[in-house]
Amino acid sequence: MTESASSSRKRRWEIIMALSLAAGILWTMFSRVPSAIGAPLSVAPSPREGFLAPDFTLDTLDGNKVTLSGLRGKIVVVNLWATWCLPCRQETPALEKAYEQYKDSGVVILGVDLTNQDLVSDVESFVQEFKLTYPILLDRDGSVGYQYQIKGIPTTFFINRVGIIRTMVVGGPMSETFIRSKIEALLKESQ
């Protein structure tokens, strides 16, 4: 190939490259969303990271009611579990420790028992065995488990102060360090 043919081919590639870059810059400008800063566009409720946590109201083991949306302004950890689930048992002490440490910083841990697969008497024994002080909610008809599209337990959602799910953990057991690091990240986020 002659020198001039090679040069003209390179020039052609240069033009293509310059045009591609110009198109990229124009497209980036064109597809801006001036009203959106920071957060993703969609905050529709859905049980996954980046979305608003679906709302629910459940009875607690001691007869009160808890509504998730009523806890806005607090960091909420929703842990779905059952007494027969081994990893759930293994991570429970870590959850209790984290609750004791962070409850005064505006952190709430909700243990949602899938009561449609469990016995309330077993839940009561479980709470006594582990000396749990965080609220235990009873999902009697499994509606919250369904709403949160649970594929396996334990499943845990770390929710920020405005109700957005930041981390979702399927399976376990979670270590105490892991739980604390996720709570610390949410505390930092809201500073």
Binding site: G24, W27, T28, R32, V33, P34, A39, P40, L41
Partner: peptide, 24 residues
């Protein structure tokens, strides 16, 4: 180039001031 083009169809973009998508 593919990311520059396709990012504008993504619903999980992080936005910078001015409405620019970070990944883009």
């Amino acid at each position: 180039a593919s990311r520059v083009f396709l990012e504008s169809f993504r619903g999980d973009s992080i936005f910078w001031p001015g409405g620019f998508r970070e990944a883009q």
